[in-house]
Design a protein around this nucleic acid. Structure first.
Lengths: 253, 253
DNA sequence: AGATGTGAATGGCTTCACAGCT
DNA sequence: AGCTGTGAAGCCATTCACATCT
């Protein structure tokens, strides 16, 4: 096929949808649990339930990887574990550095889930000279001054930023300049990076805010059933036309 | 018009897309920063850049909230901060409990981003009797035995689970039974909850795995330019037909 | 002139439903 | 008989492009 060079010609082969990639770790986790219980095969229905998705989605996801199941039977657990691990790149070792060893950085350093999945905490880095040399999770903290050398000596391509917001962009720039091309950002800031560098962010406060939104809605809907009026004239259609203007977005429950 | 009770009659009013809700906290953060610098107004272009999205998306997002801008000028920063806060439900106080005060739980308790956004850590709960009474982030840790009472006394509707995976479902069940209807889960498990309860999960290891996938692809693409062969026959089309079987996940571009 | 607000077009993801294989 | 793999349909989100307002 040697699919030429034109506009990414529907190659498919490598075209695994981002949404699917994001679920592969979920499947992998569920499969690992089955594997530990020595379950030999699993149906899409069962595995989907364990991973918290529906079975059609799971089958579609797997179809992007190839035909790894057996009709009438299901999927071979060990085989799937291997295929998904390989697809995710977990059959190789990924040295990771964590920058910013405060509460969160320490929590990350101690987090067991990394080591078990091909990730290795290669170094801990902090700007506070007082921390230098102190071991956290058995690994001595090193000073930010040596960041570039640490990255290069360890062949690190994935960096975790757990610094305060103010320091994040600067740390990010240095990581990228030193050769890091994937960053997991815990600082509440938008990071600017050059093309070719991936950033994923985890923001605790954002997650809570999303929950608050839905929580507020629940309170509102409860009230709705009792009141059933008021929303009518809703009023003020002229000047400012927010969907419910000044009406308290919350109602006595 | 007292829109009866029929199939949610295209109400729109409350129909803010989930994707938009997930971005509101991002806009809010950017706006808060502008507000602190006393910037009075901002254009969709500027604000979008600060939030790391494109301006068309931002305008569309805001259009679901109402018409809060001024054509030819932009958005009033203070006014927007208020409107988004209200929409997200941040104008009220949300007492939160954190269950599982290990490294991560402690990091969360210490995280400043909560308090600043309407969230208040009402209690810390841990199963270890040795921790009971010990203050973390200035708040005394309480024992799991009292979980139900703590929830009820404080009117908590949002719970954060930072326990080991094995304990998470059990903690979740108790939280829900006690009246919690929104859960932020840091344990690497799929939680089963009844309808009406929202769960959001944060899984550090999953984020890293997604990065590893892309990282692996980058390595592949680099090689791609140099090799340009081999992937052709790709072979083994018969027995197992994974898109590229054992061939290194690389393709001539 | 300049920037918002929004229909229309596009693209991606999910769900359905069933053909096809074991 | 049972379960996978997948076209087709439907749904949601993003992007475009411009009418509309200040």
């Amino acid at each position: 096929m040697a699919t030429g060079r034109t506009h990414r010609p529907a190659t498919r082969s490598r075209g695994i949808p981002e949404a699917t990639v994001a679920r592969l770790p979920l499947y992998l986790r569920a499969l690992t649990a089955l594997s530990e219980r020595s379950v030999p095969t699993v149906s899409s229905e069962e595995l989907a339930a364990a991973a918290g998705v529906n079975s059609a989605k799971l089958r579609k996801d797997f179809s992007y990887l190839g035909s790894y199941g057996t009709r009438g039977v299901g999927y071979d657990v060990e085989y799937l574990v291997y295929q998904i691990s390989r697809e995710l790149g977990l059959t190789q070792d990924w040295p990771v550095v964590i920058v910013g060893i405060g509460n969160l950085g320490a929590a990350l350093a101690n987090y067991g889930g990394f080591a078990s999945r091909g990730f290795r905490v290669a170094a801990l880095i902090d700007a506070d000279p007082a921390m230098a040399g102190k071991p956290v999770a058995g690994i001595p903290v090193q000073h930010t001054d040596d960041l570039e050398k640490i990255i290069k000596d360890n062949g690190v391509s994935i960096g975790v930023i757990a610094t305060p917001a103010g320091a994040a962009q600067q740390v990010c720039d240095r990581l990228v300049a030193a050769g890091v091309t994937s960053i997991l950002n815990f600082a509440p800031t938008v990071l600017a990076v050059p093309d070719g560098v991936d950033v994923r962010k985890v923001d605790l406060s954002i997650e809570l805010q999303i929950l608050a939104f839905h929580e507020q809605r629940k309170a509102g809907e409860e009230a709705e059933a009792l009141i059933e009026a008021e929303a009518e004239a809703a009023a003020a259609k002229e000047t400012r036309k927010g969907p419910d203007g000044d009406v308290p977005a919350v109602m006595p429950a």
